[in-house]
Every structure is written in structure tokens, then in C-alpha cells.
Amino acid sequence: MRIPSRIIGGAVIATLLTQLTACGTLFYPDRRGQIDGKVDPVIVALDAIGILFYVIPGLLALGVDFATGAIYYPDGTTAQVSPEKLRPAVEADGKVNRVKLQAILESELGQRLPLNDPRLIEHRGSVEQLAAYGLHPVI
């Protein structure tokens, strides 16, 4: 009778240890280190299931996910291209050639961006920004 109790005890210990490591930390280790953001409802639901079955380990799992930041969705990715590489896309009159800009961004970022999409929102720069890049505003 001693062997079945050891098996059951080992299973309980393994279950408790998996709950202590937290779902977000296990499933998305790349998310660790985030400070804030949108909370991932799947991770919250998995931690809530842990709370349902084992109150203390479930609460610890939820706390670990919040403390490590693994409970948050990842931030949006950003990319930067130096102004010197973007300069060929700007024509002499200060207007941007979208075809050249799309080719430059595709070669630098490795992604094809839909610059001719009608939903694209264009922001105009200030005179100071243009002067910083050696450009003159179109009047």
C-alpha cells in the first residue's frame, strides 16, 4: 500500500509545482519583463482554473504572471529606418514618392507595407523636422 500513496503524493506535488510556475510564464516565456499592457484573457482563465482547483497555488500563479508580466499581450512591434536611407524616396519638391518608399521599406524591414491603401493616415511633419533632414517645405 505504500507504493500507491507515493504515486498519488508525487502526482499531487507535480500538480502543485506546475501551478506555482504560472500559466503565462510557461506558455509565453518571451512575454516576461513587460510592465503593463492589455491582459490576455486566456492566461487569466487558466490561472482562474488553477484558483478553482487549488486556491493558494492558483493565486500564486496569478501573482507570478502579473509580477513577471507574462499575463500581458506583447507590445506592438516597431521598426526604424535611418533618415539617410529614406532620403531617396523624397523628391526635390518635398513630396514622398510612395513607390520608392515602399521599395526602401521592403528591403530594410523585409515586409511589404500597403502604402496605397485608402485607409492609410498620413501625418505631415513640421518645418523644423524638414529642416533637420535638409529639406525645404512646399509652399
Rank of each mutant, 00 (worst) to 15 (best):
E84Q: 11
H123L: 11
G94Y: 10
K38L: 10
L20W: 15
G94P: 12
L101V: 08
V90S: 06
D47H: 06
L62K: 01
Y133H: 10
D30Y: 11
A22L: 06
L86Q: 07
P29W: 15
K95Y: 02
D30A: 13
L52C: 04
R98C: 03
V12G: 03
A92I: 09
R124Q: 14
P57M: 02
Q111T: 10
H136E: 13
P41N: 06
L86T: 12
V39R: 01
V39T: 10
L17I: 09
D36Q: 09
G50F: 00
P4L: 11
V44Q: 02
V99G: 10
L52G: 09
V96F: 12
I13L: 13
T68E: 03
I8P: 04
A14Y: 04
I51N: 00
I56V: 12
V90L: 09
V96Q: 02
E122A: 08
T78H: 09
R119W: 01
A67I: 02
L105A: 10
N116A: 10
I121R: 15
L62Y: 00
G134E: 07
G50Q: 02
T15C: 06
I8V: 14
A132R: 15
I3K: 08
T68N: 06
A67K: 04
L113N: 10
S107F: 10
I71N: 05
K38F: 11
A67P: 07
L86F: 07
I13P: 00
Q102D: 07
G76W: 11
N97C: 05
I104G: 10
L130A: 14
D93E: 12
R6L: 13
G76P: 04
V81P: 09
A14T: 04
R2T: 08
Y133R: 10
N116P: 01
A70W: 06
V12L: 15
F66M: 04
N116L: 06
E84P: 01
T68S: 13
P114Q: 11
I139T: 11
G63T: 03
R6N: 05
G69P: 14
R98L: 09
L16I: 11
K85L: 03
E84I: 05
L16H: 03
G76S: 07
D40Q: 02
I139W: 03
A14H: 02
A92R: 15
I56T: 07
V42E: 00
I35A: 05
D47L: 04
I121C: 05
A132G: 14
R32N: 03
C23T: 12
L115I: 11
Y72F: 15
